[in-house]
Amino acid sequence: MKRRKATLTAAAAGTVAGVVGLGLLALPTSASSAPSLPPVGAEQLVESVLREQPPAMGGTVKVDNALGLPAIPGVPEGSALLGGGETRVWLDGHGRGRAQIASSGREQTIVHDGTTTWRWDSSSRTAVRSTHPDAKKPEGTVDPSAAARQLISTIRSSSTVAVDGTARVANRDAYELVLTPAPSERTVLREVRVAVDAEKRVPLRVTVLANGSSDPVLQAGFTELAFGEQDAGLFKFEPPAGATVKDDERKPDRNAAKDHPKPKIVGDGWDTAVVVDLPKGKERGEQDPLAMVKQLGKPVEGAYGRGWLISTKVGSALVTESGRAALGAVPEQVLVEALGSTR
């Protein structure tokens, strides 16, 4: 009898241990408290971010989005970057890098080996090569502190910039840089928070908060990060056997500018709206963008004629029947004004 009791106790303990283990797996991992770091000014922080070259590092970036995007027919949920997929990133600190965007059953790999960029897509088994003979940017010529001062003063005209506390991101201490739109800005965004690594001054996480919701609408940040030398083999790419190798046909800028009508910028700061003429999709054999907008959007009417409004938590887009589109992180009214002012 005694033995039976002991067995039952052990079995109960085993069951409880298993359930607790499952519970631990389900708990969110970020429960660590904010570290205490020496105070730093906003200018100083921005300047150090601009000054520091990204060091050699490897990590995993996760994008969480609660944008409230309408489901687009034909585009599978969880595709590419925005669906909460994980991207693994490696940098060697000298301009070479590798990114692998994983989604279920497929992967896109981007490798930049200094002179050539390879883009590999496992679902089509295509490797696209683009070369940059003059890849070296004249980086040394810009004074980071002057650039930071200018950047901050530009930002300050429409928002308040502050260092607001600290955070723990991917097991590293970070400062939280917060940009808040000035009260006069007509935007749907509440604030943008950037977590900057305290030691290496690398942005670790970007969080976008919108009005009317306490959870971030968009968050992209490292879930895992290690600084230090990375395997050199990661920064080379050999197209595998059986792959289709293509050269990137897109000529830089000149032709693209002719094909696409130039977008017009209306306003500045947070309530900037972009007005653009939609390309006619049928000529390219693609789906007509207007048809898709009609499916997704809410029909609206105004001085611009008839149109369709697509609104998300971070902004809205207004497309008119005549093929003009205005978009921005703003409420509908601002888009209507932008359409009116660019007519």
Partner: peptide, 28 residues
């Protein structure tokens, strides 16, 4: 990438522990 695979193993371990414990308890 080992993260998800290791989590999967831990999860399977939890289920195995629960299943085995319940089987023993019921048989006893």
């Amino acid at each position: 990438p080992t993260d998800n695979l290791v989590t999967g193993l831990l999860r399977a371990g939890c289920y195995a522990l629960i299943g085995l414990s319940l089987a023993i308890a019921r048989t006893t």
